[in-house]
């Protein structure tokens, strides 16, 4: 397996009380998969993501990527944050070039790579703007371009569209799906939005809170282009709703 999470446990002390964010979580992910971690707040989905990305240490258990134990963040695995994490004192172009500077890419090449990925996310002509001059959706596109620019193996996304309005969110979902198909990246995507998970994921890891654990893993049998209104889509969505016990009885009778 490409990513192996084995018996991951993580506890926090919060206001004197112990809180189990991850209780014996095990998960295998294949290379090139699009995985959504889905669940209510407190289910440990962000903790799991941060642990795989190397930002948080587990109390026990192990996480391996490509056979190597994860101990700290790596430039090969990029995280996209909900609040974008753009550096406000750098222009859009300089933000995208941030990781390329670490990789000692020559200046001329940095410009070319930045231009390429800004075009990919539809932000040609915005090179010299500062982040505060862009909308939230555009800022997140810059952040995605910055992540793709270093050609990472894995992209971690921590509720990346959570702060955006519904329409912008759907547009970005379309784009990230296209990008993931084109670039063949392994993507781990945290969300609490069921439709978002069904729209994006190859597999949905459904998590429950208190203690944080995996309830089940749902394979999404939708291929290629996904239609939010198709019968298949709604069928998968209903299955997830059931897992959260959110489908009312009358609705089931109506379907029967």
């Amino acid at each position: 397996m490409y990513i192996e999470v084995q018996n991951a446990c993580k506890k926090y002390i919060q206001d004197g009380a112990e809180f189990t964010a991850l209780d014996n979580v095990s998960l295998d992910i294949e290379k090139g998969e699009f995985i959504c971690l889905l669940g209510p707040s407190g289910c440990g989905k962000s903790t799991l993501l941060n642990a795989v990305a190397g930002f948080e240490k587990l109390n026990s258990g192990s996480i391996r990527i490509d056979g190597t134990e994860v101990s700290k963040p790596s430039i090969k695995n990029i995280t996209i944050f909900q609040n974008y994490g753009l550096l406000p004192w750098r222009t859009v172009e300089k933000n995208v070039e941030l990781g390329l500077e670490t990789l000692k890419v020559p200046k001329e090449e940095r410009h070319q790579i930045a231009a390429k990925y800004l075009e990919l996310v539809g932000l040609m002509g915005y090179e010299k703007r500062f982040p505060h001059q862009l909308s939230g959706g555009q800022q997140q596109r810059v952040s995605i371009a910055r992540g793709l620019a270093v050609n990472p193996d894995i992209i971690f996304m921590d509720e990346p569209f959570g702060a955006l309005d519904a329409i912008t969110r759907m547009k970005l979902q379309d784009d990230i799906l296209k990008i993931s198909r084109k670039a063949h990246k392994t993507i781990i995507f945290v969300t609490h939005d069921i439709e978002e998970a069904v729209f994006l994921a190859d597999r949905i890891v459904v998590m429950m809170a208190d203690p944080g654990r995996i309830k089940s893993i749902v394979k999404v049998p939708l291929m290629g282009h996904r239609d939010r209104t198709s019968a298949d889509f709604l069928h998968v969505r209903d299955k997830i709703f059931e897992l959260f016990n959110m489908k009312s009885d009358e609705y089931i009778e109506y379907v029967i």
Binding site: S74, F81, G85, G99, T102, V150
Partner: peptide
């Protein structure tokens, strides 16, 4: 988040 990003991009 700036420090997290820096860590991620190995600065």
């Amino acid at each position: 988040v700036y420090l997290k990003v820096s860590q991620n991009f190995a600065i």
